[in-house]
Design a protein around this nucleic acid. Structure first.
Lengths: 123, 123, 123, 123
DNA sequence: GTGGTCTAGACCACT
DNA sequence: GTGGTCTAGACCACC
């Protein structure tokens, strides 16, 4: 499993981990019953506190993406993939909506917003 | 000047003020040399601490959007409107880019992202 | 009498007036018994509050540079010019001292400070 | 790290802290990645409000002298020392220039100014 | 433990 | 009345 941490980002580290694990599950890179790295192992690998990884894993379990078996490890949950995808889409939608509204408040015309969007999509 | 505070938002109040004032300046609702509400006046109006408003105004001045004259008040700066619009566009662009990349990491196809975007634009 | 106000400076306006009037007296541009502009007149000319000019004139009188005659106006005091010059020199000395100490705290070598000083003197 | 506060000075406490920390960084007393005292720790040590220290640290970060990591602390930035030294020199230069011009306005001859300067340098 | 934000109220300097 | 600074203490998020 590949996680990239940006410690100078405004996004908390544990959330960066949650996001990336969710993304890999939804994308199919991590499949049902795959085992995640141990809390201490991942912490060591990323050179961050084990508490931070623990918080990320707690979050994933709470959202139903993983199941933790005491004394064994954390596994990708057997879950409805559609439900997950929907959750992700709702999240993306909310963020997009926020950004578009902000752009409009700034006086950007819809045409200008569309132009920026297209430039980004084609990168 | 109209400011709306969402105190249950994760975004700090002072930043909400900064954002909205910038937006109004860029959109032309606030023009050069217009005077902003007094620190204490706005604080009272929004029922928040004067220090919070002060922090927002400090931020605006630091970014060159306003000029404050001791003992007189805070005024909209006589500044290059294009430079400001550019700053806003860069900000919108960065947020959009971040969201699109996140969507892709989640396995959303470009077509799906475009669809979500169009739905939002037509709201 | 010529006064130049820099309203964006950190130095209070009344102090700028005090400084410049003192300088003109010491330099001999304003002589004993010369009359200063009226408070209201100068305020109008500089487009500032009469209270600000009043504060400056109060300061000058307190320092012995001027004498105010009720109902007539403010005059340059008949004063010991040496005492004035000494006061100015002490003031200049104090500021120079402060700056030099700051420069040293920043790790600038004496040679570097001397170099900067010479460049300024030759402007 | 050693900070000396003069609470009866006209210079705001937070600015005194900023100045002294900058000076120590430029002088090399504080090196890259050195950690600064915690906001609350320094506040306690200097017997001032934590907010005042916070404001100083915010200023330092804004000027690129430090980097602060949420939940960890404030560190001396890995930055171009030449750029910093230049900034300090510009600041010293501006202050010197101001003082010299003031001295000249007071009618002091260049020779007299040089004399005062030399006396100070040899303290 | 760390920094990030906010409060409510005080005092001072400038206009 | 305006902004500028400071206090003492609170709550939250992050590591």
């Amino acid at each position: 499993m590949k996680i990239i941490i940006n410690s100078s980002s405004m996004v908390p580290i544990y959330e960066q981990i949650v996001d990336q694990v969710k993304a890999q599950i939804v994308a199919g890179d991590l499949k049902e019953n795959d085992i995640l790295p141990s809390v201490r192992g991942l912490a060591k690998g990323l050179k961050i506190s084990a508490l931070t990884v623990k918080k990320a894993y707690d979050n994933l379990e709470q959202d139903g993406f993983t199941v933790t078996v005491h004394g064994k490890g954390t596994y990708v949950a057997v879950a409805n993939p559609e439900r997950m995808k929907e959750e992700q889409m709702r999240s993306v939608e909310a963020e997009l909506d926020w950004t578009v509204q902000k752009a409009r408040r700034c006086g950007l015309a819809d045409a200008e917003i569309r132009k920026i969007f297209e430039i980004i999509m084609e990168d």
